[in-house]
């Protein structure tokens, strides 16, 4: 039965020892340890939620990125198509213009040629008349230089008149 009888001394010392241990450990051990564990767990929870948030943001960014890329591709395509169209137009315009210019140039050339021709004709005509007069003059002078013949010719002419 002595096993079941609480002893006064042991109860007293146990109370003192346990009380002191409880006080010391509460102050110097459990408080710092539990604080750190709490802080660590809060940190972990925060890191976890941060990671989740960042992951969400990254997916959003990725979606946004592919959206932007699609948009850019669309714009690129549009620009290319437009550029091609513009280029074609420019080329067509240039060709048209060139043709027109060429046409104008050829017309102008024709006109100039005509003018040159006319001028040349005019010049040639003038020269021809001058030359003709000169030739005529020379011929006449030549003709007139032979007095005997002329006198005979005139005498023949007078004879004809006289006969008439």
């Amino acid at each position: 039965m002595e096993l079941l009888m609480p002893g006064l001394g042991l109860v007293f010392w146990m109370t003192v020892a346990f009380g002191v241990v409880l006080y010391i450990l509460k102050k110097y051990a459990w408080k710092p340890i539990l604080n750190v564990l709490d802080a660590r767990e809060k940190h972990l929870a925060k890191s976890f939620s941060d990671a989740k948030r960042i992951e969400h943001e990254v997916t959003q960014l990725a979606a946004m990125k592919s959206e932007k890329i699609a948009e850019a591709e669309k714009i690129y395509e549009e620009i290319t198509v437009k550029a091609e169209r513009d280029a074609e137009k420019i080329i067509a315009d240039a060709r048209e213009k060139a043709e027109q210019e060429a046409h104008e140039i050829s017309e102008k050339t024709d006109k100039m040629m005509q003018q040159f021709k006319e001028e040349a004709f005019r010049k040639v005509k003038g020269q021809i008349s001058d030359l003709s007069i000169e030739i005529a003059e020379k011929v006449l002078l030549e003709e007139l230089s032979d007095r005997d013949r002329n006198s005979r010719y005139v005498s023949s002419l007078l004879e004809k008149i006289a006969v008439n």
Binding site: A17, F18, V20, V21, I24, L25, Y28, A29, W30, K31, P32, I33, N35, V36
Partner: peptide
């Protein structure tokens, strides 16, 4: 009790 205090004060200190 002494052992407990020594050990856990040491542990607590390392946490501090």
């Amino acid at each position: 009790s002494g052992l407990l205090c020594l050990l856990f004060i040491k542990v607590g200190k390392s946490y501090r």
